[in-house]
Design a protein around this nucleic acid. Structure first.
Length: 237
DNA sequence: GTTGAGCGTT
């Protein structure tokens, strides 16, 4: 009875979505369900998590069956101390998909019943508008900004790949101007180390974790490994 | 083990 958000959205035809912000990163849906269920009929509780780490993002979505109950919960649970932090409860404004949400109520707008009948009509202008909107600054989070940066980097890589594919012949000038310059500088800097520093500065970690659960003492295994070597080991001064 | 404005999953 508390496996929300496990099988996707159950049924969002006439449900009222509430957004819960300022919750702790450890708060789970099971902790919010009883709290919100006390004020009305909760049909679903979902907490977005990171796909990589799986940690909570700090906010949750609670779907009520009736608006009056949702409103009551908003007024009652808004500012409630949960896990030592005041939560912020408010109606959800945006939806995950193309769901139209109006005052927290999801309204399925289907003006075109014969949309299928209509032939596909390309609309480059609409796309341009969306692109412009997307191009807008996406500064959202600071701490989690680095994750988005990774995504951006991925896109850049694709962009570069596409460009490369289009131009099989790459000018030598471009190559010289790409990365190599910096690397050359670094390499040159390291060259100094070579003549003065140790030649094997970047040697792999000598502390190869043999076995975490093994006895940290003088590993007998190490000795065993060296046994054959020790046997034919000859001291040469 | 860390953070703190915001808008969501099959």
């Amino acid at each position: 009875m508390s496996h929300f958000g496990r099988s996707g959205p159950p049924d969002i035809r006439d449900t009222y979505s509430l957004l819960v912000l300022n919750i702790t990163f450890r708060t789970t849906a099971d902790d919010l369900f009883p709290l919100f269920d006390k004020y009305g009929e909760v049909v679903d509780v979902f907490i977005p998590r990171d796909r990589r780490t799986g940690d909570s993002r700090g906010f949750a979505f609670v779907r009520y069956k009736y608006a009056d109950e949702a409103q009551k919960a908003v007024e009652k649970l808004d500012g409630r101390n949960v896990d030592g932090r005041e939560i912020r409860v408010q109606f959800a404004k945006y939806g995950p998909n193309a769901e139209r949400i109006h005052k927290g109520r999801i309204v399925e707008e289907v003006p075109r019943t014969s949309d299928r009948s209509r032939s596909r009509s390309p609309r480059p202008r609409y796309r341009d508008r969306e692109y412009k909107r997307r191009s807008r600054s996406r500064s959202r989070s600071r701490s989690r900004g680095r994750h988005e940066r990774d995504r951006y980097h991925d896109r850049e890589r694709d962009y570069r790949r596409s460009r490369s594919s289009r131009s099989p012949s790459v000018s030598p000038d471009y190559r010289r101007h790409s990365g190599r310059g910096k690397y050359d500088d670094e390499r040159r800097s390291r060259s100094r180390s070579y003549s003065s520093g140790s030649p094997i500065r970047r040697s792999p970690s000598p502390k190869r974790s043999s076995s975490p659960h093994s006895t940290p003492r003088k590993g007998s295994a190490d000795e065993k490994n060296h046994e054959p070597s020790s046997h034919s080991r000859s001291v040469s001064p």
